[in-house]
């Protein structure tokens, strides 16, 4: 960080508290979600903003066992790790070639990929189901993983082309002078340099797919994911009663891994974002 003392206007006295108020609101929201998960549903409905009278830790057991949040955790982990890695392995070479090989059709190819950012899920699930059904990928975590991978490619490619473009060209030329082929240059030199960008993509995809319910609902029959269990739980409250506190325990279970991921990898993500977005 810069050490120069900058000129501060009196405006700072007004605006800095505003910034901190926004930060405080976000912290309070997380605290509120956690506290709500420890109340009884009645207490939560009648006194949503009070401190819990008793901490009801059993809400977590109820969420984990009877609302089946536990059953989906393994699948969710497999899905985000698998689809995240697959997406990067596919998109990174493509993004590299599109941004660095200077092939005439690069622009068209890139545009084709990026157009995928606009495809809405509700219009593509039926043909996907039919096609996957033919090849036995319905009710399969692998099939869902393939969808998440394919759906993630436009975003990953969009950011990674910008990222690779920002890397200095001299490295490749030096490698070429040493006799390295494009494959070697990519896997051994460029990919490691792009590490923070790759981690960023991985984490952003993980955040997106961790909470995905629509494709999971349609493609899985006997299996479940964490977010699908949560979705089902909210859908059933009409007949079993609005057990909001158990719902919030489930939400904490859903959010906590993301929060940990973000805190552990936070610095890297931010590095990746800054490099990735500013080409």
């Amino acid at each position: 960080m810069t050490k120069i003392k900058r000129h501060r206007g009196w405006g700072h006295l007004v605006t800095v508290p505003v910034a901190w108020a926004i930060v405080a609101a976000n912290v309070l929201m997380i605290v509120w979600i956690v506290l709500s998960s420890l109340k009884s549903t009645r207490e939560m409905a009648l006194h949503p903003w009070s401190w819990p009278k008793h901490f009801i830790w059993s809400n977590y057991r109820t969420a984990w066992v009877s609302a089946q949040f536990g059953a989906g955790v393994g699948n969710s982990l497999l899905l985000i790790v698998g689809s995240g890695l697959a997406c990067i392995l596919l998109a990174a070479p493509a993004a590299y070639a599109l941004s660095r090989f200077r092939v005439r059709s690069s622009g068209v190819h890139t545009a084709l990929f990026v157009l995928g950012l606009g495809i809405p899920a509700q219009t593509m699930f039926i043909p996907l189901y039919v096609a996957f059904d033919r090849v036995g990928l319905v009710d399969s975590v692998w099939g869902l993983m393939l969808i998440y991978t394919g759906a993630g490619i436009p975003y990953a490619l969009f950011l990674l082309t910008a990222f690779f473009r920002s890397l200095p060209v001299e490295l490749e030329e030096a490698a070429a002078l040493d006799g390295a082929g494009p494959g070697y240059t990519f896997w051994r030199i460029m990919l490691p340099l792009a590490r923070s960008g790759l981690i960023t993509i991985f984490v952003l995809q993980a955040i997106g797919h961790w909470g995905e319910t629509f494709f999971a609902l349609v493609m899985l029959h006997t299996k479940t994911t964490l977010s699908l269990s949560l979705y089902n739980f909210t859908q059933t409250m009409q007949y079993t009663g609005s057990r909001y506190s158990v719902l919030f325990a489930g939400l904490v279970i859903l959010i906590a891994p993301l929060l940990v991921l973000y805190i552990v990898l936070g610095r890297r993500i931010i590095e990746g974002i800054s490099a990735g977005y500013s080409k």
Binding site: Y129, D133, H221, Y231, T236
Partner: peptide, 14 residues
């Protein structure tokens, strides 16, 4: 769950 019909509809094509 309540989404039973939503998830069954595409499967009717199978």
């Amino acid at each position: 769950g309540n989404a039973v019909v939503k998830s069954l509809l595409p499967a009717l094509n199978s």
